[in-house]
């Protein structure tokens, strides 16, 4: 994941994740964060929402659309905690890209760090796509990151991808550590100009 590469499009079958304000506690319940790696996170994705009281998997979309690559969410997706465990779990489960009405900012930043395009579209567009996926579980959904479009069946719709995310993915420079490390001498200068650094005052 740390290797840079260009992400101009992601494609595969879709999975609708309906509902507004889906928070990160729901995506990845906190009790599963007691691990020092992200390796097992896919197992915990939407853990409680997917299971009945006896712990059996039911008809949650993730189980009905197993193997999907593109998640389709509604408004304010990923709100709440900053845990990168949430998009990590989605990525490790198999999600390569998301289309949604809107995202919480930390969640979107985390997606960018992981190279997961998070596109936005209006409510009608998103719902139409969700309905299409329900009717066409094996149908391909493609997010074109550069053109800012989503194609499914015979339909192509415009979506928006925030500029920084688009540039980062298309140019293959979404690894910000490498980018910023190149500027360390400037960082030292900025820090030295701040009265509280060094003196700790």
């Amino acid at each position: 994941m740390s290797d840079d590469h260009h992400i101009t499009e992601v494609a595969g079958t879709g999975v609708p994740i309906p509902g507004d304000d889906v928070d990160t506690d729901r995506i990845l319940p906190a009790r599963f964060m007691k691990e020092v790696t992200f390796d097992n996170m896919a197992d915990y994705l939407f853990y409680d929402a997917r299971r009945n009281d006896d712990g059996e998997l039911g008809d949650h979309p993730l189980d009905r659309f197993d193997g999907a690559n593109v998640a389709v969410a509604n408004a304010n997706f990923g709100c709440g905690s900053s845990r990168e465990h949430a998009p990590q779990a989605m990525m490790r489960w198999g999600i390569d890209g998301i289309v949604g009405e809107s995202y919480a900012e930390i969640f979107r930043d985390n997606c960018r760090s992981l190279g997961i395009p998070a596109a936005t579209a209006d409510h009608e567009t998103v719902v139409a796509l969700q309905e299409w996926i329900e009717a066409n579980p094996d149908g391909e959904v493609e997010i074109d990151v550069a053109a800012e479009t989503v194609t499914y069946g015979d339909t192509t719709v415009d979506v928006a991808i925030d500029d920084a995310m688009q540039e980062a993915l298309v140019d293959g420079i979404w690894d910000t550590t490498t980018l910023m490390y190149a500027n360390m001498s400037k960082v030292e200068r900025t820090a030295a100009d701040l009265p509280y650094v060094g003196s700790d005052g």
Binding site: T37, F38, D163, E167, D171, I173, L179, N183, T190
Partner: peptide
């Protein structure tokens, strides 16, 4: 402005962080 180091190629600002707080859950990775 005082913490802005430079502009990154993706259009974002590189911002210096003067205080970084760390706890056990989100840092090991």
């Amino acid at each position: 402005e005082r913490h802005r180091v430079t502009e990154l190629p993706n259009g974002q600002d590189q911002l210096f962080v003067g205080l970084h707080l760390v706890h056990e859950v989100t840092s090991p990775q």
